[in-house]
Simulated scan of single mutants.
Amino acid sequence: MSRDVQITFDCADPAGLAAFWAETLGHQVQAPPPGFASWDEALAAMGVPPERRNDASAVVDPAGSGPRLFFQRVPEGKQAKNRVHLDVRAAPGLQGDERMAALEAEAERLITHGATRLHRADPAPPLQAGHIIMADPEGNEFCLD
């Protein structure tokens, strides 16, 4: 039996982190319920006070094939390295210098959206094609692969 998967991020700013990952993955922030022009309007109608309207956010794959990413506000900050992380496939099919140039270009683009570059692992044939370790705006590690 196949199951759908949602990936959940604990964070301080769900809307901000959702916007970052939507930009990174080419996803979109999940639309508000039918009949509402915005999430703020929908949450107000549900009686959610303004100070709680950034408690959660989500992004979805516009093609409907990728998992939903859900962002929930938690009081504590990030404590240690992630045990699970996302690999963003930014250079599929490329090898060597061409691959690393594509990864570098994507790293620079994501830095302008709040990411931090942590480490570059150069290709080491036969098993290591090279990747760049990044962190999202709240410090969650991910790889450009």
Rank of each mutant, 00 (worst) to 15 (best):
R109F: 04
Q28M: 02
G35I: 06
D61L: 01
V60W: 04
A135F: 03
P34N: 09
L43Y: 13
A15N: 03
E108R: 14
L118D: 07
L43A: 08
P33L: 09
V60N: 02
A56D: 01
D97N: 12
A18H: 04
H131L: 13
E41R: 05
G114Q: 07
A63V: 01
Q128K: 12
R120K: 11
A56W: 13
V5G: 02
L25S: 08
A44M: 06
A12T: 08
P75R: 09
D61V: 09
W39G: 07
E51M: 11
C11M: 02
F71G: 02
D10C: 06
G35A: 11
S2I: 12
T8K: 10
S38R: 12
A107W: 02
A115L: 07
S57W: 01
A121N: 05
Q95K: 10
V48P: 00
R89Q: 14
A42N: 04
V88F: 07
F20M: 04
Q128S: 12
P125G: 12
L118W: 07
D4N: 11
A44C: 07
A90V: 04
T24A: 15
V74N: 00
G66S: 05
P123G: 07
D13W: 01
A102G: 07
H27R: 00
F36H: 11
P32K: 13
Q30T: 14
V74E: 09
P34L: 09
K78V: 09
M100S: 13
E98S: 14
D87I: 04
A135P: 09
L103K: 02
I111F: 03
P92K: 11
A107D: 01
G16S: 11
R109L: 00
P34R: 10
A22N: 06
Q28H: 12
A37T: 15
Q95T: 14
H27Y: 15
R120Y: 00
E106A: 14
F36C: 04
I132V: 14
Q30D: 11
P125F: 08
T112N: 06
P34Y: 03
D136P: 02
G16K: 02
I111P: 01
P126Q: 06
A37R: 13
T24F: 00
A42Q: 12
V48S: 07
K81T: 12
L43C: 11
D55A: 13
P32L: 14
A45Q: 13
R89S: 11
L43M: 15
V60D: 04
F71P: 04
D97C: 03
D13P: 01
T24M: 11
D10P: 00
L69C: 03
